[in-house]
Amino acid sequence: MRTLALRRGARVVVVAEEWYDAFAVVTRGRVQLELRDGEPGPVLGRDAGFWLRGTGVRALRNPGRRTARVRVAVRQLPNDGGTNDMSQVSGRTGHTHRLRGLVGTGLVATLVATVATTLAAALAQAVGVDFEIPDGGETIPLSGFAVVTGFFSVVGVVIAVALRRWSNRPAERFAWTAVSLTVISLVPPLLTGANTATTITLLGLHLVAATVMIPTLTRSLCTRTE
């Protein structure tokens, strides 16, 4: 195994004799593949792995400003006919990259949902909704909406990651699960005994968070399982 360092704008020619059956992984920066016909190929980011044999790649370029690094290994098949080690590395690398992307998307969506719900609650409070719960004699503070929304949104991200890991149809199962849990979450506001304005607003806030989280995570699961 060897490591290539490509400075800004650098180009490395792929020599067939030296790169035969080679597998490469981008460990830093970005690398663009240059095709045999001279046309620019895809730009690969960190943790992206690719085979060079039979792909029509004639050179690697660094299109970024900072030095890019690529680790290159030649595939070696074990004598017992077992699974190719490099294939296992490729699978693990791709799987880890997809999970990280899903978690990152989920956390961003969680932040958006929390902010949107809190702002909506503040607007409702400004127009006269008191958020008073008669059973406990307490008023729900704005921070309470932020905490609850953030907590259950993170739970949704955990469910998405688990389905991505163990289900063969993660997007479909996540959408079904998330919608079901959202429907269940609409029951407690109806049982609090709060006035009509507070009850309707609480129901609406649940739907605001669901509208942000469910489509975002479902699309992310669809994209990352193709």
Rank of each mutant, 00 (worst) to 15 (best):
R71H: 13
V89G: 11
L60V: 02
V72E: 00
R71A: 12
L60S: 03
A59M: 05
R100Q: 13
A73L: 10
G45R: 01
G54F: 07
R58T: 14
N84K: 08
G64T: 00
V89L: 15
L52K: 02
L60T: 04
T93F: 07
G49D: 04
R92C: 12
P78Y: 11
Q88F: 13
R66V: 09
R98T: 01
D80S: 13
R71E: 15
G82V: 08
P78N: 10
G91K: 10
H97A: 15
V74A: 03
H95A: 15
R66M: 10
N62W: 07
N84S: 13
H97E: 13
D85S: 14
G91C: 09
R100H: 13
G91M: 09
V89H: 14
T67S: 11
G64F: 00
T93H: 06
R92Q: 13
R100I: 07
R58I: 07
N79K: 13
R98S: 04
G49T: 03
V57L: 01
V70W: 01
G82P: 06
R65P: 05
A59S: 08
G91Q: 10
V89P: 05
R58F: 06
R66Q: 09
G54L: 07
N62A: 10
T55A: 13
G49N: 05
L44K: 02
G82D: 12
L77K: 11
G54Y: 06
R100W: 09
N79Q: 14
L60F: 04
